[in-house]
Nucleic acid binder design. Structure first.
Lengths: 246, 246
DNA sequence: GCACTTTTTGACTTCGCGTCAATAATTGAC
DNA sequence: GTCAATTATTGACGCGAAGTCAAAAAGTGC
C-alpha cells in the first residue's frame, strides 16, 4: 500500500468531514440548500479551503452518491450469499432493493440526486467514474445470477436479450416504481395505495412469465420475499456506516 | 364562455409568449440555464413584467410541463381508438409511450424536469393541480382498458391489485427504463445495447404472465407494436402544437 | 533562524432571484 | 378633451451563493 504522510491523512479526514457535514443538508433540505459557504462555516473553515477539496458542490454530491451506491452494492453482494435455486437468489436481490429503499431512505435519496444532467455536466470524469463502476458492478452481480440460471437450465432468456438487458427490465420496474412513489404525492389519490405490493406482484409475474424455475404463486412469492427482507437485517447492520449525530 | 377583455387577451398572449421563449432554453440548456432575466431580455420586457405572469421560474417549468403532459394525454386518448381485443388497446398505449419518448423528446425532457422536489416546494397548488389532474386522466385511460379487459374476461388481475396498481407496474417499467436510458450514458457499456427492445420483451412477458388474452409470442408482439407505432404518426401530427422557430 | 513551499484565508467579482418605489399607460367619469 | 384613479411596467436594489485569487499564515528542510 501507499504510505500517506500525516498531512495527506489530515486532508483525507477533512474530505470525509466535508461529506459528513454535507450529507444531512442534502438529505434534509435538498441540493438547492447545500452550499459551499454553508459547509465551510459549519466546519469553521474558509470557503476557499472547501474548494481545495471539491471544485464545486456538484462533486460533493457525486462523492456522497458514491458512498450511498457502495452501500447498495455491498447489500447486493451480501444478498448473493443466499443459497438455493437461482430464482431465490434473484429474489434476494429484489428484496435488497426493497430493503435499501425502505431502510436506507437517505442513501436512496442521495442516489436520486445524481439523476440530474446538471451534476454530470459540472463534474469531472474522475468523480463520475466510481459511480459508473459501482453501477456496472451491481449490474454484474445480478447478470451473474441470470447467467447462472441459464447454465443450470432454470431459465431461458429470449434470444434477443442479453442477460444485462434481461436485468434491465427488473431494474427499470424497481427503479421506476421507486421514483414514482417518492415523487408523486398523489399516487394514493389515483388509486395506488400499496405500490410496494404492486411491484412485488409484477416482479413475480414477470419471473413466472419468463419461466424462471421454480414457478411460484403470489403467496409463496410474498412469503419468501418477506423472509428474505428480514434476513437482510443482520447483514445490513454489519455493512451500514455508523450513524452520524446531528 | 367567459368574455375576455382585450387587455386580458393580451396578457394571456404574453403568458404564452413567455412559455414559447422559455421552452427551448429549458430543453437545450436545462433548468439551471433558464432565468427570469434571460426570458425578460429576450422578450424585451423588464424582469418585473415576467414576474407579473409567473412568481418564479419553477412555475414556468410547471406550465411547460402541463403543455407537454397534455400532449401525452391526447396521444393516449387517440390511442384508445384502436379497435380489437383489449390487449391490443393496452399495447397501443405502450406504443404511445414509446412514440412520445422517441418523437416528442423535448416534451419528454420537460416532463422529467418536474420530478424534482424543489419545483414542487416552490410552486403554488394552482400550478400543480393541472399536472396532477392530467396524470390522473392518463391513469384513468389506461385503467379503463384494464377494467374493460376484466369485464370481458380477457384478463384476470390478482386480487391484491386494483386496476390502477396493475397499471402502475407498466407505468413503472416504462418510466423507469426511459429515465435510465436518458440518464445513464453508460448503459451500452454495461451490456444494454437496445433498451427499447428490452422493455418490449418485458412488457410482452408481463402481459402474458398475467394471462391477458390473446397470448402472443415475441414476434407477434413486436410486429403489432411496430404497426401501432406507425399508425400513431398521422394522429400525432394532428395533435402536436406547431413547431416553434428558433 | 531563514528561505522556500504549501495551505488557508476572506475580500472580491459575478450572477441570478425576487422586491418595490417610481414611472408610465390606461381607463372612465365628467 | 381633461383629469383623477387605477393598473401595468420598469429597472435599480438587496440579498445570497458561486467561484477566484492575492495576501497572509503555517509548515518544511537545512
Amino acid at each position: 500500500m501507499v504510505e500517506l504522510t500525516r498531512k495527506q491523512r489530515e486532508i483525507e479526514q477533512r474530505t470525509a468531514e466535508i461529506l459528513r457535514i454535507a450529507r444531512p443538508i442534502l438529505i434534509a433540505e435538498g441540493f438547492q440548500a447545500l452550499s459551499m459557504g454553508r459547509v465551510a462555516s459549519k466546519m469553521e473553515y474558509a470557503k476557499g479551503t472547501i474548494y481545495n477539496h471539491f471544485p464545486n458542490k456538484e462533486e460533493i454530491v457525486l462523492a456522497l452518491a458514491v458512498e450511498s451506491m457502495e452501500l447498495r452494492r455491498k447489500l447486493f453482494e451480501r444478498s448473493t450469499s443466499v443459497t438455493g435455486p437461482t430464482r431465490f437468489r434473484m429474489m434476494a436481490l429484489g428484496a435488497a432493493c426493497e430493503f435499501f429503499t425502505q431502510h436506507c431512505t437517505d442513501d436512496f435519496l442521495v442516489e436520486q440526486c445524481i439523476r440530474n444532467q446538471n451534476i454530470w455536466d459540472k463534474s469531472s470524469e474522475q468523480r463520475q467514474n466510481p459511480i459508473r463502476e459501482c453501477e456496472a458492478r451491481c449490474m454484474g452481480i445480478v447478470a451473474g445470477i441470470v447467467r447462472d440460471a441459464v447454465t443450470r437450465n432454470e431459465l431461458v432468456i429470449p434470444g434477443s436479450l442479453t442477460p444485462e438487458e434481461f436485468v434491465f427490465g427488473f431494474w427499470a420496474i424497481n427503479y421506476g416504481s421507486q421514483i414514482l412513489t417518492y415523487s408523486s404525492p398523489s399516487l394514493p389519490a389515483i388509486g395506488i395505495k400499496d405500490p410496494f405490493n404492486a411491484i412485488r406482484v409484477h416482479c413475480c409475474t414477470l419471473l413466472n412469465g419468463f419461466g424462471w424455475q421454480p414457478a411460484m404463486d403470489l403467496n409463496e412469492y410474498n412469503l419468501s420475499m418477506s423472509k428474505l427482507n428480514e434476513s437482510l437485517q443482520p447483514k445490513f447492520w454489519s455493512v451500514k456506516r455508523p450513524e452520524q449525530p446531528q
